[in-house]
Amino acid sequence: MPEVRVRTEDLTKVFYDDGRGEVRAVDSVNITCESGEILGLLGANGAGKTTTLRMLATVLAPTGGNAWVHGHEVREAAEQVRASLGFYSASTALYPKITPRETLRFFARVNNYPKARLEQRVEYLIDRFGMESFSDSRVEKLSSGMKQKVSIARTVAHDPPVLIFDEPTVALDVLNAIELRDIIAKLRDDGKAIIFSTHIMSEAEQLCDRIAIIHHGRILATDTLDGLRQSTGHHYLEDIFVHYANSSGSDDAIGMVSDEVVG
């Protein structure tokens, strides 16, 4: 029986910029994500995806609304929230001077994974992600594909029930991107609740069980791909996205879509 693992309620983030004044980067976002589900957060660059995910990961504090991860409120129980999730993004790098084995040991331990089972967990992850041949080499010496495996293993080192992937394939070549998507799909099969942000349409189509379309900080629609097709009458996700972006009333919607969202 799937459980709701992530829930937001009017989640809002307002930044103050010297030049632009008040900027509502995220505006009353309401999403949920269940165990064994991948929720795609689809939007152009600057739509508010990363800010939303950073608030869920407690890297940023919300200015309005609220969010719960595995039952813990992001503002009141930030440590428990972080213990319950693994956060992966293009900007979360690895420590170059330590080995994959040391990386996994450190992240499992600092995320409160039981000490008695720690070594067993590290060995399991090395085996599962095929890192045997380079587990004791320094991260700085690894190829980008190897680093990517270490990054994912680091994200799940403490076996969290919730995983957040923020544009994880943005800097990867085609083969590595395919491998990463396979790994994420397997993690869903393990019962993880996964939020996956992307601006690549094909990725969202292939991987996500439900898709939330975010534009200018607001969620315009959340449904399965079939549900979105039925609601809009369009078959392709790109057309569906343009449909919602245009109906949101923003003048620059089509321009942004053609520039940023072509997968």
């Binding site: 407690t58 972080r82 999730l85 979360t92 790098a93 420590y95 170059p96 995320n111 403490h158």
Partner: peptide, 14 residues
């Protein structure tokens, strides 16, 4: 600069 700061900020430690 090495982009490991955000990684560290997302760990469960206060």
């Amino acid at each position: 600069e090495r982009s490991t700061w955000e990684t560290l900020m997302s760990v469960a430690s206060p």
